[in-house]
Design a protein around this nucleic acid. Structure first.
Lengths: 222, 222
DNA sequence: GAGACTTTCTATACATGTAAGAAAAGTTAG
DNA sequence: CTAACTTTTCTTACATGTATAGAAAGTCTC
């Protein structure tokens, strides 16, 4: 029977760095110089260690980014007063998540990693699922509904911030824009009709419009 | 006045490889060994050239992947008989795009790159926009609606295929799953209630459900 | 034909993520 | 104390994307 109160230390070489230290240092690097400055080597010197030592605390760089995102969410997403009406509560919770993520431009590389599962984000997820249930959906349908909202949200952020970044880089227009300029107005009349406004239209932020549509659609129980 | 019919060749060293050749070779590599096998060096030897020569035909690897995706779309997406009823036409067109992309597991890394703009995909985009207009939306709102559908579609694919890949890798469960196991059922009752089914629920393919909800929502003009 | 100009290709170099294995620094059993 | 064992750290090495500089191979002007 092991003595429970004895401060018996662990065997093995004692660690000189911790996951928390690593994340802290990573956060410093990212907030100062952007996510592009975050390399394993830089991070290692920042915590006073070697690159490979990091890999004992973090599976790989992607996991590091996920941890960083969760850390960010934990300190940004604060539970706030949400509307009482379920439908509006859903919209507000999703919008809160969306705003937090949009304000953090480097996440794009991480969003592909399944849900946003930071403990602090979970409260908002709960609000969404609960709102859907309150509107009459079964629990299963509510979870599926939340997933749809998450797909929409993640897709919006990933697609729009990548596009925005590309615009900011002042890249020469890709051949895609060329394609769009050469539209055949007999074959594709609507697109041709919208062609000149396409760039402006797709740059607009219509997250809430789409979200409301999606939520409305989810709530007309079928 | 330049002689129009003269086969005056271009100045400069004549190219030994073309963008088409490159894409062809890349397709071979990817279909044989997966996208992980596609490196610039391998591609270079495949076309009998050097890595840096590729960069005269392709801006960078990302553009190569985009080209590859368009190439794939061009040979997979065939215009098909779509329902006449506008709402069903929208759903069918989006589903066609979705199915083509899902069948092609390496796209994930590219989907972040704005729209799917392959010429062959544009026809489906046209169907969606036109369907929305036929249901009474203004052209602007229809374009926005299409964008919402695209966000949802891209997000669904990116999130779900990444999750599936991770599952297939047999990774040790990430700390996210740990978080989910430790849910406090007082704080987050709905999530706790769904916790054990969460994995199964989020693995289900509910693309069409969400899509229909979104389209329904878009069509109740507000 | 000689040289200027243009386009494409090649050689070399660097930063990055990370695999593999050895070394270090502890704890525990004898 | 010594030896086995464990955990963490360090060293070295490799594959990859791509920047940079210059060489090669054409056309054009004269």
């Amino acid at each position: 029977m092991p003595q429970p109160s004895a401060p018996r230390r662990n065997p093995g070489r004692p660690p000189r760095i911790s996951r928390e230290e690593i994340i802290e240092a990573a956060r410093r690097i990212v907030t100062e110089g952007g996510v592009g400055r975050l390399t394993m080597r830089r991070l290692a010197t920042e915590v006073g260690s070697t690159p490979m030592a990091l890999y004992h605390h973090v599976r790989d760089k992607e996991e590091l980014l996920v941890l960083l995102l969760d850390d960010y969410a934990a300190r940004t997403l604060r539970r706030s007063e949400l509307p009482a009406h379920p439908r509006e509560r859903i919209v507000a919770a999703a919008t809160a998540i969306h705003e937090a993520l949009v304000a953090c431009p480097w996440i794009v590389e991480v969003l592909t990693a399944d849900d946003l599962m930071s403990t602090s984000a979970l409260w908002f997820v709960e609000q969404i699922v609960d709102g859907l249930v309150a509107c009459g959906l079964s629990l299963d349908r509510a979870v599926h509904g939340y997933r749809s909202i998450w797909y929409y949200t993640a897709g919006e952020i990933v697609v729009r911030t990548t596009a925005a970044r590309r615009r900011a880089d002042g890249d020469p227009p890709t051949y895609r824009e060329q394609v769009f300029a050469d539209l055949d107005s007999n074959e594709l009349p609507r697109l041709a009709q919208a062609a000149d406004r396409w760039g402006a239209l797709t740059a607009e932020d219509t997250y809430q419009d789409g979200l409301r549509a999606l939520v409305d659609g989810l709530l007309v129980s079928r």
